[in-house]
């Protein structure tokens, strides 16, 4: 079983990102559970959501404590949250950032999701949308297939800029 923890801020779409990853894994013929942790969040507060992917039906409903991968949609949460807490040895990190970043013992995949969203004008109510481009980045590093990622996005959102952003993120992510 592969376990993922997603860090974002309330309103950035971390919950939808988890759902899209589960949908993509499902398209790849695997089992998945996506679950948000709902607390007393409000817009802008640090939030987490989780995904589990497996070749067997998933029986675990408790939160992910030792993720195989951490996704950070907003690097500013790293100032207030230990996003690497419990990360397994060698566990991958995908971060939305323009800064180069290295973490000893962990493969790090920095990608400018915000820049991509702004470039294709994927902006809602003044906020760049990150949860569809991140699927492209995850496809590039092999978590889900590219076809499955694009299928999950297309069946969820009508706006073609979502798929466009995901394709751009796929190209711009270092595998």
């Amino acid at each position: 079983m592969f376990e993922i923890r997603i860090h974002s801020r309330g309103g950035q779409g971390g919950v939808t990102a988890a759902k899209l990853i589960a949908q993509a894994a499902f398209h790849d013929g695997r089992f998945a559970t996506a679950f948000p942790f709902y607390g007393a969040e409000r817009r802008g507060a640090p939030v987490v959501s989780f995904v589990r992917i497996s070749d067997e039906p998933i029986k675990v409903y408790s939160q992910v404590r030792s993720p195989d991968m951490v996704i950070v949609l907003d690097a500013s949460v790293m100032d207030v949250i230990d996003v690497f807490a419990g990360l397994r040895e060698g566990g991958a990190v995908l971060i939305n950032t323009t800064e180069p970043l290295a973490i000893e013992g962990h493969p790090v995949h920095p990608v400018d999701l915000t820049g991509i969203a702004l470039r294709v004008n994927l902006v809602v109510a003044g906020s760049p949308i990150l949860n569809t481009p991140v699927l492209g980045a995850l496809a590039r590093i092999g978590l889900v297939s590219r076809e499955a990622a694009l299928a999950a996005i297309a069946e969820t959102f009508d706006d073609p800029r979502n798929v466009e952003a995901a394709k751009a993120a796929y190209e711009e992510t270092r595998p």
């Binding site: 089992f31 559970t33 679950f35 948000p36 998933i58």
Partner: peptide
């Protein structure tokens, strides 16, 4: 069904 643990999670 359990609140959030089932109501709000996504599965196949």
């Amino acid at each position: 069904l359990d609140g959030f643990l089932l109501s709000h999670i996504t599965q196949s």
